[in-house]
Design a protein around this nucleic acid. Sequence first.
DNA 1: TGGCAATACTG
DNA 2: CAGTAT
DNA 3: GCCA
Length: 413
Amino acid sequence: MTLVGEGRQPQHGGTETVKDPLVELYDEAAAELEKEQSSLIITDESQDKIPEAPTSQLEKGPAKGFACLAPPQEESTQNPNQYIIDKLKELRSIYESKQGDTDTFKVFNLNKVIGDLSRVKHKITTRAQALKLQGSGAKTADKIMEIIATGELQRIQAEDTEEYRVCKLFAGIYDVGAKRAHQWYGMGLRTLEDVEKHKEEIRLTRNQSIGLKYYNDLQERIPRAEASAIFDKIRETAMTLDGNATVYIMGSYRRGEQTCGDIDLLLTRDPTDGITHAGMLHKLLDRLHEQGILTDDLVIPPDNRALEQKYMGVGRLPPDGKMRRIDILAIPYDQKGAALIYFTGDDLFNRSIRLLARKKGYSLNQRGLYGGVGRDTKGKKLSEGTIIASKTEKEIFDVLGVPWREPHERRRK
DNA sequence: TGGCAATACTG
DNA sequence: CAGTAT
DNA sequence: GCCA
């Protein structure tokens, strides 16, 4: 066991050559890591040999567009394009609240642009520069130029309607998305009080009621120190159940962010003594309820003996902390690496690295990296394939030729 | 012009 | 299956 | 919305 010392490592593994002109940046980033977060996350990254890559579709590494291959973002320095980023985020928020299929991908695309924009260190002033950003085409470049020229974006003002605002309010309720939000708007609802008042007619689900009940608390970010305190309590409780339990805190906390959207925990246990964590999650949940840490369950794992389970719920720092979203993922010990990647995110990084895996003939999910995956002509998965790597993050990164990225380097901002 | 990550739960 | 969530 |  080493403390977060997954270690930095060569630029690429496997057979691919990912050219990376900014190697120095990695070293700088590495030098400035080793922060408080380290002490809490214990990752056992044993150095297993890396299996050979399957016959790859790609001769040379993908040239661009993979956030997981891009150099880490600079810390602290105020971004010179912040005002552009802010406007694009507003636009993204509008697309998010729409229902159409294409809107989803506009969001997807804007995420790329915003990601690249927050990574770029020079101020964008020309259309040519705007066009160079990843995910930025003619339309986006025009928008960026408009923001530069006027400080505004007409598109935003046009779409900033009552319906948009109300739907955004509704979609803040857990288990309410764009569809239901617009549906309720169409029924004439305008406020959270309206929703409460008409809960029978609109057949508010159990989870939506919970989401509504704690609306304000759940909208708030969680201070890092509080997340840490909740994590400590839960870990202690787990340790009383089984001294060999392993509990990690993941998500935005592991990425080193100062506030977290929710608390993501990972639960597992080294089975070398013949004992697994089977059944442990349910016991843990019971204790956490007794302790007043957990107050409401959103999704309880159906099979309490399974090694892989996902719990979603609401809880707080007792006795009277604000209500927080808490997820606990139990996973088989040997899938720790893949689970760490999945649960650490961020989502853009995950999508990027999964896309890269697929392009190289693998498939990556929360359980591991698979080779020999059968896919139809459209890329739809037909067969599972065989597991290639899953124990450590590094092992998976190596096979994919992804330069090592510390958790705090996996965020787009 | 089709694809854009991959998977699980609820009603 | 549609919708939501991670 | 962008890109292969």
